[in-house]
Simulated scan of single mutants.
Amino acid sequence: MNIYVSNLSFNVTDEDLQDFFADYGEVSSAKVITDKFTNKSRGFGFVEMSDDEAARKAIAELDGGIVEGRAIKVTEARPREERSGGNDRRSFSPRSNSNRY
């Protein structure tokens, strides 16, 4: 099961995240999401656990827990939604009246 963890302290590492869940069962992966430009934590991450029952127990017990002074939110991750490649808004060019809304 894939688990979403939010409101993480910016000091939490992948290893810390794995350690939080290791008491509940085998952790397949743990990843704190970082900004692609600064490489700093974005304050959330994902944990993958192979045993769904263990994952549900971890979610129930860790949700709302305090980590480094912050109450974390732990939920089952939703599948990633497809992003559309286009922008539905018409562009506006101050040089031309033809593109006005």
Results as ranks from 00 to 15, higher is better:
S91F: 12
S9Q: 07
N99T: 15
F46M: 06
L62F: 10
E26C: 01
L17T: 02
V67Q: 14
S9V: 00
Y101E: 11
N11W: 00
E48L: 04
S28M: 10
I66S: 09
S96F: 02
N2F: 10
S93P: 02
F92Q: 13
V32K: 07
R70G: 05
K40V: 04
G65N: 13
Y24I: 01
R80F: 04
N99P: 00
R90I: 08
V12S: 08
A30K: 09
R95K: 09
S84P: 00
Y4A: 09
A58K: 13
I59D: 08
S98F: 03
V32Q: 09
A54E: 06
S6P: 04
G45V: 05
S50M: 04
N99W: 10
K57C: 04
E76F: 11
L8P: 03
Y24N: 01
R83L: 11
D35G: 03
K57T: 07
T38C: 07
V67P: 05
S28F: 03
D23S: 14
R56V: 00
N39W: 01
A22S: 15
F21Y: 08
I72S: 07
A58M: 08
G45E: 03
I66R: 09
E48C: 05
K73F: 15
F37M: 01
A60G: 07
A58H: 03
